[in-house]
Design a protein around this nucleic acid. Structure first.
Lengths: 341, 341
DNA sequence: AACCTTTATGTAATCGATTGCAGTGCGGGA
DNA sequence: TCCCGCACTGCAATCGATTACATAAAGGTT
């Protein structure tokens, strides 16, 4: 047996009322008489009625979903942000659609599909480097759904965003190393065009300047946040005559790659070189050595972005270009110590 | 200016045809005359028309989305599976809804909402321990959407699933350690009720038996796949008189926790004890020491599950209770060596 | 008693696209 | 010339729920 799914008319008939009353009894219970409400609820229960969302959404002109644009779903860095977003959305009974934007540059059409009110009520972008083509559509007040950036943001600053205080993170990393007595400090950066790279670098450079320390260009290792980039930087470090005694890695992943590759060449952290990471991903406290790093509240960033977006969805407004900055925290562990120890 | 979004009637008017023709020109182009088709496409382009999905879905009686039930979105283990699912779905222009099931036991109603045809055309469950209440509904042929399990599965085996050969993984882990000369082999398991725990343990135990080795109950450390569980097992290991010379950890995370905690107590891997993990997550090759582990093709598991599900969605059939098993591979790295070396 | 509120419910239009069925016009075969 | 079939296209019903508006009944006021 496979009975057709119950519709609102079935419930109405069984309860002896009109469909309008059923609809009201379920979504605005206080507007119908108690006896009627009970009859409707009983009938709904009996028939196993569940509202048809396509019909509701069509009528209400909304979708009940927001989409999250993730630069690379396979990267575990994003999972906690997603968890935060999901937690906030599920409270409000809103669905989370997840889309990987790896193809965004080759096939922007694919992503553009989502920037449309009939797909989603709003958008959270975790990817600051979406092609201009897409940003233009998202920014125009052509009825595209509201958009909020989380963690990353766009260089032109044309959208609301929720993010960590990356500049401060860069400052704290350098200040910590300098406190320990380091004077020759290197840095492994993210991708050159990335906004996080720029912010963390700016913080680090300004701290160095304040301290009267210069950054030797040979001690600046360009990376891309990945394990392999860290390993590559390690090989560059090994090739130097005058090596930095400490290195600020702009992501934990790069720190792991760096330490790991050094270890293979018999160089030990923190004995031979101190390392600071960024992110405080779960494994950081269990790496060997446990990694000193900057914690950014990824789950909270996700939740905050989701709440901000929902607010705009609810009030049907374009998000003001506001930037919410959440603080980072230096977590001291075992990968840093005084130089030459 | 915010012009109302173009509807199909707008396109029809501009192209001088009926809405029926517009609809056909867009979704079954070969059924309309070429000249008409061009006129429609031009009109669609000019008006910026995008089909309204709620309306289409209502009429077509489908949702164009499948939902993925994730036990804990914050756990990075799942991100690669999600990436695989997303890749397969996006090819077919199907959306991926992600839902965290952490609350499934306390509020099964919340998850039940999704087991309904008006929410999603199908379901992929990454969580083998959904409450019976939910499984009953999913299994009944009450019009609930088809469901496929990925990575995990249900103990009663009542659903189709795609998974790694966990039993074989357990066997390979033990065989590898025995090959190296280990005779006293311990094991850190996952949660007692988990199907993965059962399968991996079964493989390990049968391999031990084949080799004529027994598992000392004191060498069986109950865990839960987490970093902390591994650390806890390390403390138990340290407390033993006769310690195993090798330990098979049923997840990489536990292996990291185990190695890390041992390291804090001056015990070194693999010099003092060999360790095999399970999963081959990205960091495994960069841990210190690089982790010997069993690779399971997580992305491929995700893709395969998604394709299987889509097939059933397309043909509108309940998935036969078929089990697709993908092979695991032993990756030899530096955390294992001959005992007493 | 007449009139006004308030509360509860029903009627029917509406959201936007799809598709079964019916028509139209044209070309070819008998 | 007549008829049939084919290729297109249009008409209008349909998917299922929501909600503006109308109506009815009950209660309150003067």
């Amino acid at each position: 047996m496979e009975p057709r799914a119950a519709r609102i008319t079935d419930v109405a008939r069984l309860a002896g009322v009109s469909t309008a009353t059923v609809s009201r009894a379920l979504s605005k219970p206080e507007t119908v008489a108690e006896s009627t409400r009970n009859a409707v609820l009983a009938a709904a229960e009996k028939t196993g009625y569940r509202v048809n969302l396509s019909a509701r959404n069509l009528r209400r002109q909304r979708t009940g979903a927001i989409v999250v644009l993730v630069p690379n779903l396979g990267n575990p860095f994003f999972s906690e942000i997603l968890a935060g977003i999901e937690a906030a959305l599920s409270e409000a009974d809103i669905n989370m659609l997840v889309v990987d934007t790896r193809q965004a540059h080759s096939k922007p059409q694919l992503i553009l599909e989502y920037l449309h009110a009939s797909r989603a009520d709003g958008i959270i972008a975790l990817d600051g480097s979406l092609p201009d083509e897409i940003l233009a559509v998202a920014g125009a007040d052509t009825g595209a759904p509201p958009i909020v950036f989380a963690c990353e943001w766009t260089p032109n600053g044309a959208f609301a965003s929720v993010r960590a205080n990356n500049v401060r993170g860069g400052e704290l990393a350098i200040a910590h190393l300098a406190d320990l007595g380091h004077r020759r400090i290197g840095m492994i950066t993210g991708p050159g065009t990335n906004v996080l790279t720029e912010a963390r670098s700016r913080g680090a450079l300004s701290a160095l300047e304040t301290l009267g320390l210069a950054l030797d260009p040979a001690h600046l290792f360009p990376g891309d946040f990945s394990l392999n980039a860290g390993a590559g930087a390690a090989r560059a470090w090994l090739g130097l005559d005058r090596r930095p005694t400490a290195v600020f890695c702009q992501s934990d992943q790069m720190a792991f790659g760096f330490i790991s590759e050094l270890s293979r060449h018999g160089v030990s952290v923190p004995a031979d070189v101190s390392v600071v990471g960024f992110d405080d991903i779960a494994i950081a406290r269990r790496f060997i050595p446990a990694l000193t790093t900057l914690r950014q509240p990824r789950e909270r960033i996700g939740m905050t972005a989701a709440r901000l977006l929902m607010e705009h969805v609810r009030t049907n407004t374009t998000p003001a270009i506001e930037t919410t900055i959440l603080e980072v925290e230096l977590i001291r562990r075992d990968s840093t110590r005084a130089p030459g120890g």
